[in-house]
Design a binder for these strands. Structure first.
Lengths: 201, 201
DNA sequence: GTTGCGATGTATCGGGTCGATACATCGGGA
DNA sequence: TCCCGATGTATCGACCCGATACATCGCAAC
């Protein structure tokens, strides 16, 4: 789903590889350390070959050229690329619901309609609920067979799943009730404020 | 680090591929859905070639044969494999601290000494703290440049990091104070018990 | 002042991992 | 009887990461 991320960022502004990497790092800071160049550059090549992006004229606009051979390569999105981006963003396959896929989709939620957002949020919730049930199964059935550390790992994983589901529920409720973006705001350095209970107002 | 996982499981009992996959699913339920066969079988081949594991005699022990051509292939760990497993388990490279690596190491914590456990727990904590600081940076510096959804994603990620760090602190404290396995126990179906505050007794 | 290091940049390679797929047997229920 | 789901082994293409190489620029320390 790096494809989706690149297309999304290039829709905001033309960029070159290095810049894309930095932007990805701040936008997807949660999910991955940073996109590897071994992924990024081949993907750019692939997208260019597919016609979704093209090289922008080096002379133009804000970005200063590098005054040397092998200068930076600035890419911009094409009309076909925009179409493709919209398709990818709306589509809800299984890969939409895993950590990486969901994260990228969520990042571009502001460019989608509410129906799509709800579909994706509910799909993700379902995915996490399945994982949660799997963990409960394990803790119920195989608890005596596992050592203390493994058990602790499962419990911790279960905690994380339950928390994730609650987060998703909140977002879904917000979407349904009309408040488009998330509402919760946190004051710095108060580690555990009692979450404002806003499901079912 | 699938290598480490396979070696660890085969140390408990000889197994064939399908069984390994199931065992991995229950032991590492948290981290990955299930190991893909496209990963598992090539890895088994590789480990066998390296001499860490070998094919067990089909006739022997508990597991019934399949009475047909291309029966199941049971693997067992070799002496060199046990050595290699111990080395891998003790060693603390960067890959020890990412999600997958840490999870596998943690699963086999009961087979390590306390010093190693502490090294790994602290390395993991450091890793998560770095991610946390990165997220705080983003939320402090780039907050106005990001839309509400992206911000919410970062906040959620930050929450997860803080929680993870707290969990690790708890484990580290326990290790240091002599209680080897984790202490916390949860009663079923009470979703949010106030965590027994046991840092600094 | 020059030397050297860190940030900026593009690019490739090997290897690990996934998802889909193919093939084959076995047990049990419709 | 017939078919479906669990049990099994195996491969292929695609994706992605980490390490590495190469090259320039600005700045700071010596």
């Amino acid at each position: 789903m790096l494809e989706l991320a690149i297309l999304g960022l290039l829709q905001e502004a033309p960029m070159h590889g290095y810049e894309l990497r930095k932007e990805l790092a701040t936008k997807l800071g949660t999910l991955r350390a940073a996109i590897s160049y071994g992924t990024l550059y081949p993907t750019l090549k692939r997208l260019k070959l597919a016609g979704w992006i093209s090289e922008a004229e080096a002379s133009s606009d804000i970005i200063p050229p590098m005054t040397s051979k092998r200068g930076r390569v600035v890419y911009k999105i094409t009309a076909e690329g925009k179409e493709h981006f919209a398709d990818l963003l709306t589509q809800t396959g299984p890969e939409t619901y895993d950590d990486a896929g969901f994260g990228v989709h969520f990042t571009f939620f502001s460019r989608t309609d509410r129906a799509t957002r709800l579909r994706i949020l509910e799909g993700r919730r379902r995915r996490i609920e399945e994982r949660r049930e799997g963990l409960r199964e394990i803790l119920a059935r195989a608890a005596d067979r596992l050592d203390a550390y493994t058990l602790e790992l499962q419990r911790h994983g279960l905690d994380a799943c339950e928390r994730e589901v609650r987060w998703l529920e909140e977002l879904i409720t917000n979407e349904r009730s009309g408040r488009t973006p998330a509402v919760r705001q946190r004051t710095e350095s108060t580690p555990e404020p009692p979450r404002p209970h806003l499901d079912r107002p």
